[in-house]
Design a binder for these strands. Sequence first.
DNA 1: CTTTGTGCAAACGATTTGCAGGATG
DNA 2: CATCCTGCAAATCGTTTGCACAAAG
Lengths: 140, 140
Amino acid sequence: MQPQVDKIFQTMKAKGLRVTPQRLAVYADLLARSDHPTAEDISSHLNQDAPIASQATVYNSLQALRKVGLVQEVLLEEGVCRYDANLEEHHHFRCQSCGEIEDIAWDLIQPIDFKALRPALQVQNYQITVHGYCDRCHSK
Amino acid sequence: MQPQVDKIFQTMKAKGLRVTPQRLAVYADLLARSDHPTAEDISSHLNQDAPIASQATVYNSLQALRKVGLVQEVLLEEGVCRYDANLEEHHHFRCQSCGEIEDIAWDLIQPIDFKALRPALQVQNYQITVHGYCDRCHSK
DNA sequence: CTTTGTGCAAACGATTTGCAGGATG
DNA sequence: CATCCTGCAAATCGTTTGCACAAAG
């Protein structure tokens, strides 16, 4: 088991939530994937061989994980919510042709000091969303 | 009628789409609002006194306007799609407490040269989404 | 008279919820 | 044994679609 998975035990127990096999499976699946799956993606991937977690439980688990801060929502397209267990701050690129989503490392972009720009706002975090065409689609 | 509204005639006709009273009403409503209303917001606002456009027509009109580039989708929260007729590039701030959305002027933030950072990506546009607490919620 | 758009209601897809039964502490 | 969680199915919410009629070119 990857070291990162340990986090769920500390984090969830600290908030009084149980670490059930289903929640663990959802979290492990998210950690193991580099893409940003939807709830449906996770559900079908998880249950492809044997039933691990019902659809409702996947949704519930994602909410629980989100509540304790282990996963984040990612909103890049209309109509679907994607999830991400990569808690390092990062930005996103989305290909307008194939829909592929690519992370953009936080360090690549010079930090923006919103405190200086807009002192009235108490900024918690920010992300940059980049739209365009990926290498593969572009070269077609 | 505001000068901006004229745009719809040129733009839609150029693409072979008709400027119907409903589409005009939806567009004018969007131009007149500084917030970023949902389709439902627009529909109820438009029809509060007299029936102007059915719900389906509001959705269709928004798609038509989006297709010709007069309005943009704004994805800031899960489950709802917001719309914006402000075509000047800009960023968004969303208050995590009251949900209020505020524009952040494009010029406020130093442009990012993605071509230099990630030459493989053909970047069309990008926006920054800032989360935090607005002045009002923060001072509570 | 052919094309495009509207309105209604039904269909849809993603997500949530109510509730009975199970597992956990 | 009290609490929390799961699974199922039904419900909900935002959005889309099929179809008949109306309007525009």
